[in-house]
C-alpha cells in the first residue's frame, strides 16, 4: 500500500534534484553556441570557383538566387587559335528572406563554389536588406569549417589521386630525360 502523500513527496524530490543539477540555459550572447560542423547557418560563395553556369539559380525551388554576368573575350593565346570567351560574374545575391535552406544549390554546384557556413547572426531590421550580395557571401566563406577528415580506411580522394598520378608521371619523365642526357 502506498503511503498517503508519497506522491507529493516524490514531486518535491524531483524539483530538489533538478535544482542540484546543471541548468540547460544557453547564455547565447555571452557564450557562443557550440554548433555542429555541418550546421546549415548561411550559404557562402567562393566566387573564384563560380563559372556562372546558372545551375544553382535554376535549381533553386523558390528562385532566391540572382546572378548577372557578361561575356568577356580573351585574346587568343597563339596566332592560330581563335579568341576564347569566358563568363564574368557581375552580381551574385541570395535573398535569405526567401531561402528555405534546402541546400539544393550547394548540391548542384559542379565547381564547389557554394558552401554551408555555420554563421547565423545576419538578422536585419528590414526584409529588403536580407538580400545579401556577393561580397557578403564571399566574407562568409571564411567561416566555413574545413571538411571533416576522411575515414582512415577510405579511398584516396580523386583529386589527390589524379594530382599524384600527374606528379609521378612528370617525375618519371624528368628522371627518364635525365637518364637520356647522361647516356
Amino acid at each position: 500500500m502506498k503511503l498517503p502523500g508519497s506522491g507529493l513527496a516524490k514531486g518535491l524530490a524531483v524539483t530538489l534534484r533538478t535544482m542540484t543539477k546543471k541548468t540547460v540555459t544557453a547564455q547565447y550572447p555571452e557564450v557562443q553556441p557550440d554548433l555542429a560542423p555541418r550546421t546549415r547557418g548561411v550559404i557562402a560563395l567562393l566566387e573564384e570557383n563560380c563559372t556562372v553556369c546558372m545551375l544553382c539559380a535554376r535549381e533553386c525551388p523558390d528562385w532566391c538566387i540572382y546572378i548577372d554576368s557578361h561575356k568577356e573575350t580573351l585574346p587568343a593565346v597563339d596566332p592560330n587559335a581563335r579568341a576564347r570567351t569566358r563568363n564574368v560574374l557581375d552580381r551574385f545575391a541570395i535573398d535569405f528572406s526567401l531561402c528555405m535552406y534546402c541546400g539544393i544549390c550547394i548540391e548542384v554546384c559542379p565547381f564547389d563554389a557554394l558552401f554551408w557556413s555555420p554563421e547565423f547572426e545576419y538578422a536585419e531590421t528590414d526584409i529588403l536588406e536580407l538580400t545579401h550580395e556577393r561580397d557578403r557571401l564571399r566574407e562568409w566563406m571564411w567561416t566555413v569549417p574545413a571538411p571533416p577528415a576522411l575515414d582512415p580506411a577510405a579511398e584516396e580522394p580523386k583529386e589527390i589521386a589524379m594530382a599524384r598520378k600527374a606528379a609521378d608521371k612528370a617525375h618519371a619523365a624528368a628522371a627518364a630525360a635525365k637518364a637520356g642526357d647522361e647516356s
Partner: peptide, 10 residues
Amino acid sequence: KVMAHMQGRL
C-alpha cells in the same frame, strides 16, 4: 533563482 534552478533554468 531557486525556482529557475528547480526548473533547470538560470
